[in-house]
Design a protein around this nucleic acid. Structure first.
Lengths: 180, 180
DNA sequence: CACGCTTGGTGTCGAGTCGATACTAATATT
DNA sequence: AATATTAGTATCGACTCGACACCAAGCGTG
């Protein structure tokens, strides 16, 4: 067993463990993952197709997942005025509460020395980036790390969509993000 | 977003990506995971309850998964003579072929410097161990790392079950394993 | 401007996961 | 011998997931 194969097994096992722990409500892993993505995504990146691409599933599946979350009152639907086809899903207060919880896995990771955490984050990011590039997937990076992000003293601006941004939006995930 | 929360997100995303890639046959992620476990587990650790505990699911679910793999010809059932309740699932040739494939994720991990791979493996192992301990789960370590493993020049022996072992079995996963 | 192509979202189908629960049979305990 | 525990299974309901078909909205080119 090589290091790499072992690492893959660890990743899958940890993910499985995390999924089975994050339970407790009437939500399953896929639904939790969707809520967590919505918590961190900016307003341009909350359509079913974006969540689907981020999580590596299809639009059909994600559509169903979001409808289920809708029925349970964790998200709300908003049709776009600019493009009448697209829908944006926002977290409700209940949804924010669930998505914002600290997972047991996070606490376990925090027991590692800070230095180790940084290495871990770095290494996993590298692997993910290379895999995403191989599949032709988008990076889904942070708004502030985008080539089109413009920042002044007390305001921000997206040069791609030609829209003003709030300062907090800089720290959110954007599906349009192009690494600077 | 803390380092730890980011790492958790990376782990889940990588696992999801891996699952969606390891497809192609008539097998889903849970079935693949079961096959991969069976490939690496020794003959005392291939019962539905062991696979279920390893993967963090229930006996009922795993029973169904293994039956599905049975129907598709990837595993074979063997009732134990010692304990007529228990069943052992072994990989067929087709099962070994699928479980032994190299995943794209493994190739991506292998592009990291060897030093980085070792760190990554080490860090993830630490986290997993601490999580397993917290849940009261077993370690599922390797046979050769067990307190009951006895090794001589050209043979091996399990002092817990009082049974002779083949040399290859030392590198397999054992559900009884107690870290030395 | 009208034609077609593409895109975004949804509905449906079938196989299967998953937890919960309830059950059987075999083994342990007392 | 009676009881408790353990291993595996069947069944139920909610849901995932890929595949596919469908519709409506936006786009692109002649």
């Amino acid at each position: 067993m090589t290091h790499a194969a072992h690492i893959r097994a660890l990743i899958n096992r940890l993910s499985r463990l995390d999924a089975s722990e994050t339970w407790g409500d009437d939500l399953n892993p896929a639904q939790i993952s969707a809520l967590e993505y919505l918590l961190r995504a900016n307003r341009f990146s909350r359509a079913p197709s974006h969540v689907a691409e981020y999580l590596g599933t299809t639009r059909g599946t994600m559509s169903q997942t979001l409808k289920a979350l809708m029925r349970k009152g964790y998200v709300s639907e908003t049709r776009s005025d600019a493009d009448r086809r697209s829908i944006r899903y926002d977290l409700t207060v209940a949804g924010q509460a669930v998505a914002g919880r600290t997972a047991a896995l996070v606490e376990a990771i925090e027991t590692l020395p800070f230095e180790r955490q940084a290495e871990l984050s770095e290494a996993l990011s590298t692997v993910l980036t290379s895999r995403l590039a191989a599949r032709g997937g988008r990076a889904f990076g942070l708004c502030c790390g985008c080539a089109y992000h413009r920042r002044t003293e007390d305001s921000a601006f997206c040069a791609l969509l030609s829209l003003p941004l709030s300062l907090e939006e800089g720290d959110q995930i954007c599906h349009e993000q192009v690494a600077a």
